[in-house]
């Protein structure tokens, strides 16, 4: 017969293992409290840092906002200035250097050609690239020439506008209107004398 005697009460029993549930529970509770404290402290710290950053940014912005407004105003004024300046430069850029043209024409015109009329007209229209406002100049020349080379003289004058600067840079077309090259109708003109007309159309000069 065996006899079992308990000398210890159940609550008096000791467990030698370090993984005692009570100890584990204490550690767990301690860790939980520590975690809560750390989380709170970390959140507080992060909040303080972000608050300071925000305040410092707001202070910088308060100073910068005034300068940005000044810059924006200057930007607007600059845009207006550019517009006005561009428009004014359009006046300079679209004008035809008439005096230079007259001078070159006098120099280059064949001696056997006598100009009797020079007429230049201008129309300000929407045209050119992107339908922009532009000036269109047209030059009408009338003159007389004579001799067996009369037609060549007129062609020579036509070629001047096509090939010689400053005309060639600005001219779109040079035409002799149909029927304009004909016998000189004036009294006293020789049989070989001819009158002619030239129409010189310039390329649109965009404002």
């Amino acid at each position: 017969m065996s006899l079992h005697v308990d000398l210890l009460l159940p609550e008096e029993r000791r467990v030698v293992t370090p993984m005692h549930p009570k100890r584990m529970l204490k550690i767990l509770l301690g860790a939980l409290i520590l975690f809560a404290l750390l989380a709170g402290a970390s959140a507080l710290q992060r909040y303080r840092v972000s608050y300071n950053e925000r305040r410092s940014a707001a202070e910088r912005w308060a100073k910068m906002e005034v300068r940005q407004k000044e810059a924006a105003q200057m930007g607007k004024d600059l845009a207006v200035c550019r517009g006005v300046y561009g428009e004014l430069q359009g006046w300079r850029g679209t004008r035809l250097p008439v005096a230079d043209w007259l001078e070159r024409l006098a120099t280059l015109c064949p001696p056997s050609v006598q100009l009797t009329e020079l007429r230049m007209t201008e129309t300000a229209v929407l045209g050119g690239p992107k339908n922009a406002p532009c000036r269109r100049f047209e030059l009408h020349l009338a003159g007389r020439t004579g001799g067996p080379q009369a037609d060549r003289n007129v062609l020579l004058l036509q070629a001047i506008f096509k090939n010689q600067k400053p005309f060639s840079n600005a001219v779109d077309s040079v035409t002799i209107p149909e029927g304009s090259f004909r016998q000189d109708p004036s009294a006293g003109a020789a049989k070989s004398d001819r009158v002619f007309e030239l129409v010189i159309r310039c390329a649109p000069r965009v404002f």
Binding site: W91, R92, V98, E117, L118
Partner: peptide, 13 residues
């Protein structure tokens, strides 16, 4: 005047 523009001219003999 750089902005003045001669827009029409007629020279007749």
């Amino acid at each position: 005047n750089p902005y003045l523009s001669i827009t029409e001219i007629a020279i007749n003999g």
